[in-house]
Structures are given as C-alpha cells and as structure tokens.
Amino acid sequence: MTVTQTTTHHVVRVMRFDRVQRAAHWANAALFGALMFTAIPLYFGSFFGVVLPRHLIEQIHLWCGLALPIPIIVSLLGPWGRGMRRDVRRVNAWTRQEIRWLQTRGRSPLEADKFNPGQKLNAIFIGAVILIMLVTGSMLQWFRFFSVSLRQGATFVHDAFAFAIFAVVIGHITMAITHRDALRSIFKGWVSEQWAAVHASRWLKETRDGDGSPDAR
C-alpha cells in the first residue's frame, strides 16, 4: 500500500466506486451520522439541552430517519444505478470459500471478491438496519396504531439495534482509516492495481478479463 503512495505517477488505477456510489455512500453516512449524533441525547436524557433543545433534536432525528432509505433507493433505481446494482449482487452472492473464510475468521485461503466477506456483512447489516430502524422508529413515532406490547417491543429493538449500529459504524470507520488505499476509493473512486491484487484478487482478474464485470472504466 505504501508503494502506491510513493509512486503515484506509475500507479495503475482501478475504478472501485463510481460517482453515484460515492454520493450514495456519503449521503447515507451523513444521515447515519446525524441520527447517531442526535440519538445520544435522546437516549441519555441528562445530556438534554447541552447543545440543542430537545424538541429540535427530536425533529432532526425524525426527519433524518424518514430520509434514511432515500440515498440507497435513488442510487439503485434508474439508469445511473448500474454500479450499485452490480455491487448489491456481489454482496449477495458468496462463494463457499468466502463462507469458509468467515467461519474460520480469516484463517482459510481467500481469493477475494471486490469486497471481502467482512465488508459484505457490513453492507448487508447496514441495509437491514435501515429497514429495521425505519419500521421500529415509525412505530414509536405513530405509536397510537400499535398495542402497548408492540410499542415496548419496537422500543426494545430500536434501542438494541442502535447499540449494534454504534459498534459496527465505529468498526467500519476504524477499518477505513487504517486502510488508506481502500479509504481513498470512497473519496476518489479508484484503488491501485497493487492493492486490488492483494485485497480483491478475484475482482481484479474479472475486471482485467472483462468477463462481464466492467468495473474498470
């Protein structure tokens, strides 16, 4: 990875994320950030009023929550969503080798796809929690339509997954800032060929062979 930074002029660039994907990622990240930031004072009432009045925090949390699925949906639909749709298929489809790699926590051999199994799990988790938090959050907002028992269950799930989201997002950011080459690709779109050869070798082969995986453009 250091090679790519010191010999920038000779780096062969491989496109990893197109503009639509990067925009979707950052819009999604901004919404997650706003939701997590406002979740803290809403959960720990004693922080209330330190930064913003509570009703304002509630409104920010509500509207960001309702907007949460928009970046994913908009980026997937329409002619601009080819890269997104292709990557969703990649995240969904696992080889036996990938499953084994996850089961052995990385000790079995892996010819990595564009995303390694951990990255794929992260994406699946984020997709699932967007749906879960939207549904349970809506149940808490419009609670009158639900029995007290369901309200309590929705509160339980919303809070439990909120804790999981904090853990996963902190893990995601930690991995990102300790893997600079991969991190660059979510800003500028490309990774070096050297990085891809090590961390996404199967994907690199596919893009080189041009066998229906036209990620490099």
């Binding site: 696992w94 699946i124 369901l150 799930v157």
Partner: peptide
C-alpha cells in the same frame, strides 16, 4: 454462489420482527 446476503438480510430483519413481537 450462495445468496448469503439475502439470507443474512432476512435473518436479521426476522430477528428484529421477533423482537418487536416478543421484546416486551
């Protein structure tokens, strides 16, 4: 290929649905 993504997605959302139903 195995559709692990779909399975995990459905598994996690199913778990959440159970949590809503029985979490209380």
């Amino acid at each position: 290929r195995v559709p692990v993504g779909r399975r995990v997605f459905l598994g996690v959302t199913g778990l959440a649905a159970l949590g809503v139903a029985f979490g209380g």
